[in-house]
């Protein structure tokens, strides 16, 4: 089990390295640089700046330096926010993004599982139709549109929740962003759960359980949930990655202090270090979640062995 986890991590490393390399060279080969501001800098200053950030060295050497530092856990300096290192910038934005993302992930997953199961148990009855319709709304209304609508309805007209901004520790400010982020995830999860639950409820082993007189509740809780969760669990990894993507927009619409805001402006300003740092950190987080998901999967499906 432990060895399995190690192997999984090791097998992901080459991909991380390839991704880092690709990002690094694409960024550098593109026209423009971090110091092409609106006002042109004097050539001397520019040369100094470039030298300071090693931008005057051959590309391959810069790459070597970057990877070398990275292996020591150093993401390098931010080239636009010049008083900060990338690590500091990440430390400012990332905790918030992760807090928002994981809250929405948990809320969306739970809501999706409950909605999907309820739908399946009441298949083709009123609760099922209502839920299927709600799920459809969650699926087809893009999150930026949903954000605007909720902002307008609950933030402006009804004035139940703040329409944007952030006060540390304020749950009020989190309600709308979490709903917007969680909805599509909940929708996808619910669809998967409904489908797989319906399939499981029709299996022979559920029929066996019914023939044993176990009662609906016990059948659902013990016999149906675990196998029905399997396809849902394998969606959780990609699901989280969708969700973190969505947080880019949500942070922008609700003016929240996450990493998303910095990422887009960093890419626009060619802040090489910050863009790479954010990408790498996202990758690591998502790979870690995938690893957890795989372990969860193996627990649910005894046929999976760590060989």
């Amino acid at each position: 089990m432990f060895g399995y986890a190690i192997r999984r991590v090791l097998s992901a490393l080459p991909v991380v390295l390839i991704a880092v390399t690709a990002c690094f060279f694409i960024l550098r080969l593109a026209p423009g640089g971090p110091f092409d501001g609106e006002r042109a800098l004097p050539p001397e200053t520019l040369a100094n700046l470039r030298a300071h950030y090693n931008l005057d060295l051959p590309l391959i050497q810069q790459y070597g330096i970057y990877v070398g530092r990275l292996l020591q856990g150093d993401f390098g300096p931010s080239m636009v926010y010049n008083d900060f290192t990338v690590a500091q910038m990440l430390w400012i934005g990332l905790p918030f993004t992760l807090m928002l993302g994981f809250t929405a992930f948990v809320v969306g997953t739970v809501a999706g599982l409950v909605a999907g199961s309820l739908s399946a148990v009441n298949q083709n009855k009123l609760p099922d139709y209502v839920l299927v319709m709600l799920v459809m709304v969650g699926l087809v209304v893009p999150n930026f549109l949903m954000a605007s609508i909720l902002q307008l309805v609950f933030g402006v007209y009804l004035d139940w929740f703040p329409a944007g901004g952030w006060k540390p520790g304020s749950l009020q400010h989190l309600v709308l962003p979490v709903i917007v982020l969680a909805l599509p995830h909940a929708g996808r999860t619910a669809r998967l759960m409904r489908g797989s639950m319906i399939e499981v409820l029709g299996t022979n082993y559920v029929r066996t359980a019914r023939s044993k007189g176990l009662g609906t509740r016990l059948i659902l809780a013990r016999h149906a949930i675990k196998p029905a969760l399997l396809p849902v669990v394998s969606y959780l990894g990609p699901g989280l990655s969708y969700l973190l993507t969505g947080s880019l927009v949500v942070e922008q619409v609700f003016a929240l202090p996450g990493i998303g805001k910095y990422f887009i402006s960093a890419a626009l300003n060619r802040d090489y270090g910050l863009v790479l740092g954010t990408t790498i950190l996202y990758m690591l987080i998502i790979l870690a979640v995938n690893l957890l998901v795989d372990i969860l999967y193996a627990w649910l499906d005894p046929k999976v062995r760590y060989d």
């Binding site: 097998s11 992901a12 991909v15 991704a19 690709a22 990002c23 694409i26 960024l27 593109a30 423009g32 990894g237 990609p238 990655s241 973190l244 993507t245 880019l248 990422f263 887009i264 890419a267 626009l268 863009v275 954010t278 990408t279 996202y282 990758m283 998502i286 790979l287 979640v289 995938n290």
Partner: peptide, 19 residues
């Protein structure tokens, strides 16, 4: 499998912005 888990949209944003 691994690509599935990557924050792909970030790459696209990088691509789009850069080019």
């Amino acid at each position: 499998d691994i690509m599935y888990a990557l924050p792909y949209i970030l790459f696209v944003i990088i691509l789009v912005v850069i080019f």
